[in-house]
Design a binder for these strands. Structure first.
Lengths: 210, 210
DNA sequence: GTCTATACAGCGATAGAC
DNA sequence: GTCTATCGCTGTATAGAC
């Protein structure tokens, strides 16, 4: 059951879905300006013209990629929230969503688009911002809940913490790329959340001093 | 006086310097795949062929941009270290280097190249990694010094904290771009360093609970 | 829906004159 | 050192047949 605020992923022709799948992967690995209709066509063994039948231009394709990615990401957050009830564990699961991308050598789709932001078609700008806003909203709710239940403790507003989490995880992914490993990402993610746990909750997960 | 480990920025023809200046700005704003010899030539009112006289190809130009940027960045860190003696203040000044970029709508040059990493000429890869390594080394030294002097306190290794700082600041810049403001960056940077200050030093800068 | 063929702009790069 | 001219290729996008 969907609430009025959530959006449903539109039904698509099978071919359109295949195109989005390939384009999404190329975008997350190479960036918006470093993949082409030819790349997608080659991989799917289709002509470039067939792609244009499904997606008029690259700006439209990009817009649809953002929409689908955002809908799926929001759905993953809702599923995560239903599965995990403890706020610190929810934050850890949130960072695991990013870690999963990293294991496939990918960046977050909207993180990649953020670096390409100046060169994107205007029509794609709002979608990128909306993605980050939805992340901030979800994290703020989780953080607030964690405060109320006494599992989390911090001085700043939930929104400020949320932006810190989003930025730090995106940046940790960015740094991971040239090194081709996940160790820096994992270390950063765990440090990030350690400082948010309430003293009582801290003991269960804290590490020994080296 | 330079130590044996530091490199000196090579003397260049005035034109070569102008080319690097323009290319650097375009790269930091648009990314490596979203600026061209034509862009630089137009801006400098020169022909593309003249650019090729100074820099054989785009890979060489990119390599020189990384080298110059790294040398200047390392020099800025050394100057900062000479000017500021307190470890927490050094960290704040470090993040101000990034903030200064953001005020010009720029990303860190190597942060931008990290997102473009998969599509870069192989010859540019090592330079990007070297830039981040130098950042890690400098930060680790500052962090270690802060521990020894009792100004900083943390459980992880200096290296782990250093990577966290680098990643979080790069990511905070990335998030700032689509929003076109510096507020999220500033908030993240201040939170980042707050958790590292030793209790005794904390009182001087801590903020009231909202 | 998919194809071939093609238009047209932009790319990095080179030749050769000045 | 800088130019004009041009090459070969790739980019996005379209026309029109099937």
């Amino acid at each position: 059951m969907l609430t009025s605020m959530e959006e449903r992923e539109p039904e698509r022709l099978p071919t359109a879905t295949l195109i989005l799948d390939v384009a999404e992967r190329l975008l997350q690995i190479r960036g918006f300006n470093a993949f082409s209709y030819a790349d997608i066509a080659t991989e799917l063994k289709m002509s470039k013209a067939a792609l244009h039948y499904h997606f008029v231009g690259k700006a439209e394709l990009g817009g649809e990629l953002i929409n689908r990615y955002t809908i799926r990401f929001v759905a993953a957050l809702a599923a995560l929230e239903a599965r995990v009830s403890d706020a610190p564990a929810r934050l850890a699961a949130y960072s695991d969503l990013y870690l999963a991308l990293l294991l496939e050598q990918k960046m977050c789709l909207c993180g990649m688009l953020a670096t390409d932001f100046e060169t994107l078609p205007d029509s794609m700008h709002a979608g990128v911002v909306a993605f980050f806003d939805k992340n901030e909203e979800w994290l703020s709710r989780v953080l607030e809940d964690g405060i109320e239940k006494g599992a989390l403790e911090f001085e700043e507003t939930p929104s400020e913490i949320a932006w810190m989490i989003i930025g730090c995880l995106q940046g940790a992914m960015l740094i991971a790329k040239p090194y081709g490993d996940t160790s820096r990402f994992k270390s950063t993610a765990s440090q990030l959340f350690k400082g948010l746990r309430a003293p009582a909750a801290k003991t269960s997960r804290s590490r020994a001093v080296k």
